[in-house]
Amino acid sequence: MSQPIYAIVAEFGDPDDLLVAAEKVYAEGYRKVEAYSPFPVHGVAEALGNDCSKTRWTCFLSGVAGGLGGYQLAPDDTRSV
């Protein structure tokens, strides 16, 4: 046996090629795949099974917490008694 192969890196000259490759690799069953690009290429992340629901939920819940917290700061009634 020659040395174990830890990873394979493929470089593409075109973002479209990257997308096609990503889809194919995922279809072949590879999960520990990461695709790198200098700018976001749409579809690649989804093709590799990534989802950023964590980000979205964090944002949403932070927003709710911030909003509710903000309401606590202000008084309900501003008439001076």
Partner: peptide
């Protein structure tokens, strides 16, 4: 930051929010 697709996905999501 490594420019990974997962990074980009989160980035775009956060950025647009």
């Amino acid at each position: 930051w490594r420019g990974a697709a997962s990074h980009w996905q989160r980035y775009e999501s956060a950025y647009i929010m």
